[in-house]
């Protein structure tokens, strides 16, 4: 019972048991139950189911999401540098991202700011690329394909995701490398003389990121378009509409929540991706997550790492909310 892990579990279980058994063990337990039953949610689902649901959500949101994040927020305001004061709170980690070290000559921390901006812009590009790739697929699957074809298509889309991310990224290196398959083909058909360095010009990284998140883009859009009444497409066509206007006026407005949901996920995950930029990124193109990673593991400065991570997180959230505002999508619609 001395090792920290089992101690942790004992405490953990004790809390859960206390929470669930408290009402039962109380003297006036009858009244507690009575009060519980007054709540509509409890009445509808029964005491045990509702206790489980509420408990699971509280555990999930509270214990696993909010608590560790709050801890990291606190961390990001501390001085984690070697020789610093770990007690009091400070803004030094945030100011470092913007202004750099005080002793530096430059006014701003151009290197990190540039990487940050480039990460955001590149993620937007990846999102747009993924959307351009996935919208036609999703539309085809949802409206045109018949049962068997659609299933085959979906399996072909899902199967590659059984391969883990690292392996997929390295496979892309083989594809895009200087002596890779694509260069070999291009040279052999005489289109180019010298191999193109796809990795240096970030083509491989864009391709890898778009590929990694294709499903996250396809499925929300597919779901949205699938519920669109095919008669509406035919009605638009019957009224003389060319195909592009049908998409622009009928399908895309209808699928907007799905598109927003897909784009948000792809954007967030691209901006927060680590493996793909690490493996497929060119030597000169640092991804912001790589800097965060370095703070945590090479620099040993968790405080600064968390500060950087929060800057990335909040910037992404603000960016996404702004875009959603611009396109008039509600947050609630994303969960549709």
């Amino acid at each position: 019972m001395n090792d920290p892990l089992s101690t942790f579990f004992v405490v953990f279980l004790a809390v859960i048991m206390a929470l669930t058994l408290a009402p039962v063990l109380q003297n006036n337990s009858a009244r507690v139950w009575e009060n519980l039953r007054q709540i509509k949610f409890v009445r509808k689902n029964g005491v045990f189911v509702s206790t489980y649901l509420v408990g699971a959500v509280v555990l999930w949101v509270g214990l696993m999401i909010v608590a560790p994040q709050l801890y990291m927020v606190d961390y990001s305001f501390r001085d984690g540098a070697i020789g610093g004061n770990p007690e009091g709170h400070t803004l030094v980690n945030y100011s470092y991202l913007i202004f750099g070290r005080e002793s530096d000559e430059a006014w701003f921390n151009w290197l990190h700011l540039q990487v940050f901006l480039r990460t955001i812009i590149a993620s937007v590009m990846v999102t747009l690329l993924a959307f351009a790739l996935c919208y036609p697929i999703a539309y085809y699957l949802a409206q045109t394909a018949r049962g068997g074809t659609a299933r085959l298509f979906l399996i072909c889309l899902i199967l590659p995701f059984w391969v883990n991310e690292i392996l997929r990224a390295f496979a892309f290196r083989i594809l895009f490398g200087s002596s890779g398959v694509i260069n070999a083909v291009l040279i052999s058909i005489g289109l180019i003389d010298d191999p193109i360095d796809f990795i240096k010009i970030d083509v491989a990284m864009y391709a890898g990121l778009s590929y990694a998140y294709i499903l996250l883009m396809v499925f929300p859009i597919y779901n949205a378009i699938e519920s669109l009444d095919h008669n509406q497409i035919e009605a638009a066509r019957d009224l003389g509409s060319p195909w592009w206007r049908i998409h622009y006026r009928v399908v895309i407005p209808y699928a907007k929540p799905g598109i927003a949901s897909g784009c948000t996920m792809v954007f967030m995950l691209s901006a927060g991706a680590l493996a793909v930029p690490q493996i497929l990124g060119g030597p000169s193109s640092l991804w912001f997550t790589q800097i965060i990673y370095d703070w945590f593991f090479s620099g040993g400065d968790w405080a600064r790492g968390s500060a950087y991570a929060f800057v990335l997180l909040f910037s992404c959230i603000i960016f996404v909310l702004t875009i959603m505002r611009l396109f008039k999508v509600n947050l609630g619609e994303l969960a549709k």
């Binding site: 009444d229 035919e234 019957d238 006026r249």
Partner: peptide, 27 residues
């Protein structure tokens, strides 16, 4: 169908739910 001098009224009408009545009519 988009080039024929016909217009079809669907069984379920297939009005565009995200457009106003006037936009529907003037589509």
């Amino acid at each position: 169908p988009n080039k024929r001098p016909t217009a079809l009224i669907f069984q379920n009408l297939a009005l565009f739910p995200l457009m106003s009545v006037a936009e529907n009519i003037a589509f």
